[in-house]
Computed example of a mutant assay.
Amino acid sequence: MRAATIIQCGQPPVVVERPEPAPGEGTVTVTVTAAPITPLDVLCATGTSYFGAPAVPYVPGVQGVGTLDDGTAVWFPTDAGMRAGDGSMAERVSVPASTVVALPDGADHRLVAALGLSAVAAWRALTWRGELRPGEQVIILGGGGIVGQAAIQLARLAGARRVVAACRSDAARERAHRLGADAVVPLLDTDDVPTLARRLQDATDGPVDLVLDPLFGIPAAAALRTLRPGGRLVNLGSAAGEVAPLDSATLRSGSLRVLGYTNNELSAAEKGATMRYLAEHAIAGRLVVDHDPVPLDDIGAAWAAQADGRALRRTVIVPTRLGA
């Protein structure tokens, strides 16, 4: 079978012929129809992540969508790049049967792959960790990314009365508006916490209940100043910086809560239930994210674009076409 393969850490994968996955006890074989290139895939393949350098060669891809031998459409996760074993960017892959999630009829495989664990994180960070309630006002930092795109729509589905997004580029701001943000604030032209805080406050309708933060850094410190007493900020990433200049006075005066979130805290059952919930919304047209399908043969260029920040949409590798 054909598979994208990391031959050397720090280099894009190349497509090579590899043996068919061997069936094992408790595993199923999935014919892969869609596999997203995520920042985690790229990070693991550099050999510099906190998981350590992966043994090469290996097939990357920490998640994917495909079909079982009986035709059942499934989503599945893998540990590729984090532990020994191959991932989703191949024509077929063997995965533990306990991890596959049967998808509802009519699911768009490429859209579900694009949503994937990013949308899982957005939903669970909003509703479980962030305790979002109907009628609350939410700020979504990084509203142009996959997590942010999903969060704008999911906050609405959870009953938020007003959703304010903050984005860096013009394209991201247009996308956030299109997805339903009530107001969109630019992030690019200032690194001043008070200035950005005032900009966010001007876009809101009174104090904010919840901030969803995949950025940290300056944006998180600014958004913290918009929260009502007892308000919550949930951090699930550090795209803008590993350190944020949070001031003690703001935290103490508002009795604010700063919370961390990771998908790693979810059980397989919780991930599965969330994926099915998200797929239902996607089928109904209530949840979309911008994505580009790319043939397996073109993965080298697509991977490089993700690695150096040129990929403006989620890239979804298509190893096997539906119906092929």
Rank of each mutant, 00 (worst) to 15 (best):
Gly260His: 02
Val316Tyr: 04
Leu126Arg: 05
Pro60Asp: 10
Pro293Leu: 01
Pro96Ser: 01
Pro36Val: 02
Ala222Ile: 14
Thr29Pro: 07
Leu296Cys: 04
Ala222Pro: 15
Leu111Arg: 05
Thr78Pro: 00
Ile7Val: 11
Gly260Gln: 02
Val289Ile: 13
Asp182Phe: 10
Cys9Met: 15
Val15Gly: 10
Val95Met: 02
Cys44Ser: 09
Ala97Asp: 09
Arg2Tyr: 09
Val243Asn: 12
Arg225His: 15
Gly260Asp: 08
Asp69Arg: 11
Thr127Asp: 14
Leu157Ala: 15
Leu154His: 05
Ala221Asp: 15
Ser94Cys: 03
Ala80Arg: 01
Ile146Asn: 15
Val28Lys: 00
Ser94Ala: 12
Asp292Asn: 04
Val15Phe: 07
Ala151Pro: 05
Pro21Met: 00
Gly300Phe: 01
Pro19Tyr: 03
Thr29Ala: 03
Arg199Phe: 09
Ile283Ser: 00
Pro57Gly: 06
Ile146Pro: 09
Arg83Ser: 00
Ala197Ser: 14
Cys44Gln: 09
Asn264Asp: 13
Val112Glu: 10
Ala114Ser: 10
Gln149Ile: 12
Gly85Tyr: 01
Val14Thr: 12
Glu280Ser: 08
Val289Tyr: 07
Trp123Ala: 09
Ala122Asp: 03
Pro214His: 07
Leu210Lys: 11
Ala221Cys: 10
Pro77Tyr: 00
Ala53Asp: 05
Leu227Met: 09
Val138Tyr: 14
Asn263Thr: 12
Ala102Gln: 15
Leu266Gly: 04
Leu259Asn: 01
Thr226Phe: 10
Asp86Val: 01
Thr67Gln: 14
Gln137Asn: 13
Ala80Ile: 02
